[in-house]
Amino acid sequence: MLRYVFKRLLTAIPTLFIIVTLSFFLIRVAPGGPFDLERPLDPKVMENLNKIYNLDKSLLEQYFIYMNNVLHGNLGPSFFFRDFTVAEMFGNGLPISVEIGGYALLMAIIVGGALGVWAALKQNQLPDYSVMTVATMGITIPNFVVAPILTLIFGVMLGWLPVGGWNNGAWENKVLPIITLGLPQVAVVARLTRGAMIEALRSHHIRTARANGLPGWMVVVVHALRGALLPVVSYAGPAAAALLTGSVVIETVFGIPGVGRYFVQGALNRDYPLVMGTVIVIAVFIMVFNLIVDLLYAWLDPRVRYD
């Protein structure tokens, strides 16, 4: 087990290296630079700025400087938010994004899983049809539509919850963002669970469990659900990485100081260190969650255990 984890972490290093290298050169392909404003800066100022940020050196040199910094844990300063380093920005924003995303993920798995199981047990009956209809809607209606509707109902008309803002993380301010972020995931998880559960319930070993006179809950929870969780786990890994690294739409609509906005802002402003920082953070999240998925998989299914 430990050997496997070690091996996986070892192979993550070259992957990360390739990702960082590719992104570094790709973002430089985009025309324009970080200090190209609508009204051009004085050439002298420009030259000074370029010098400070090493932008006057050759691209290859810049690359080695950046890699050296990253290896020393320095993600560099932000070109756009000039008072902050990239590390500071993530230090402030990431916990907020992780919190919102984490609750959304939890909601997706618990609510989505429960709905999926219910629909599977009532296959082709009213509960199944209703859950699947709502789930399809949840997947197809984009969150920039859901967010204002929820704000309108709960914030404006009922006045139960604030319409936006972070307010230092007061719980009222988290409810709507979490629900908006989680809803599509609830829908996907419900559909996945339903499908896997229907298949599991038809399998031969479930017939054996029934023939053995095991009570219904035991057949469903102990024997069917564990197998049905496998595809959900596969989906939840990458989904977790996406949720925990913030959502630009949710953060913009609700005014939350998370890290989801940084990718878009960084890219638009040619804020190279910020873009690179985001790439690294997302890549690390994806690799970590893929590893967690594989470990969970092995824990759930003895047939794929390592060593």
């Binding site: 031969h204 070993h205 469990a209 197998g227 299914d301 003895p302």
Partner: peptide, 9 residues
């Protein structure tokens, strides 16, 4: 079906 009648997990 002895191959599939036991729960693999």
């Amino acid at each position: 079906e002895p191959m599939t009648s036991l729960d693999p997990l």
